[in-house]
Design a protein around this nucleic acid. Sequence first.
DNA 1: ACAATACATTTGTATATACAATAATTGTAG
DNA 2: CTACAATTATTGTATATACAAATGTATTGT
Lengths: 148, 148
Amino acid sequence: MNVEEILQTESQIPLESRTIIHFLLVNNKINESISNVLKPFDISPQQFNVLRILRGQNGTPANLSTLNDRMITKMSNTTRLVDKLIIKGYVDRITCPSNRRKVEINITETGKKELKKMDIAMSNAEKKILKNLSKSELKELNNLFNKL
Amino acid sequence: MNVEEILQTESQIPLESRTIIHFLLVNNKINESISNVLKPFDISPQQFNVLRILRGQNGTPANLSTLNDRMITKMSNTTRLVDKLIIKGYVDRITCPSNRRKVEINITETGKKELKKMDIAMSNAEKKILKNLSKSELKELNNLFNKL
DNA sequence: ACAATACATTTGTATATACAATAATTGTAG
DNA sequence: CTACAATTATTGTATATACAAATGTATTGT
């Protein structure tokens, strides 16, 4: 994935700008791939993200602010996102007994089962995206990201 | 930016998944920063992208499919995106005389002037995002991206 | 106990985006 | 030269997202 080629420019782009643009281009590719993986499951990347967070809770219910904190893409409307997962039967939501302002959101058995299928598809897609990088290159990439 | 810390998990995530998640997290940070830079100019990242492409044309008008090809984030509605830039007076659009199916889109002088201001703000933001990476680390990052 | 404040979520609304359908123009095969 | 296919852009519509306002509940100070 070459920046100059895609942008069709001959001019010299400053290294910082080039890096950011490069980053956005790669990100786009990743997003596309993720969307394709999830499309058969009729679930959006954000919904998938929420499901994974809930599973990671290991049975401890999550409330909305917890979800928001841990979501990759923060969005102001986790309520409606959870609504959609409820309709699909992947999560349930009850008002927190000890503090009725809060809600308790849990992944259902159906949700876990479906998530497992998605994981496999996702894992394959990830490997495909990153197939040209060696283990050490992957580590290097993570190290660089850590610095940001 | 540490993945495990943000995801609040103690479990070992496979290197590939970790890289992708890491990528998405960094991307989110970049997007946020870009949005903040552009907010005072009342322009979306996509609109900014289109303006830059048009400037890069050096006077050669672009039609919609050219824009679509070069845009970082492809979206199906470049028409309405251009509409908004026209309202702001940053670009103009005429139907192509030689092929009336096509349109010719150009950046205006006002557009160029505003874009110059945005560039400065954007460049500062880019430097800020990448401030913890050395020149050689930036190059390394670009090299890794090239392989994807 | 009451009012004021803070908290957690939900709802309203405007804008953005994705995808499909439509319209307008051009190219082409017979 | 006409019918049909291909190209390019626009419009319609449903869903997603961002941001602000509203709702319901809990906490705090007096």
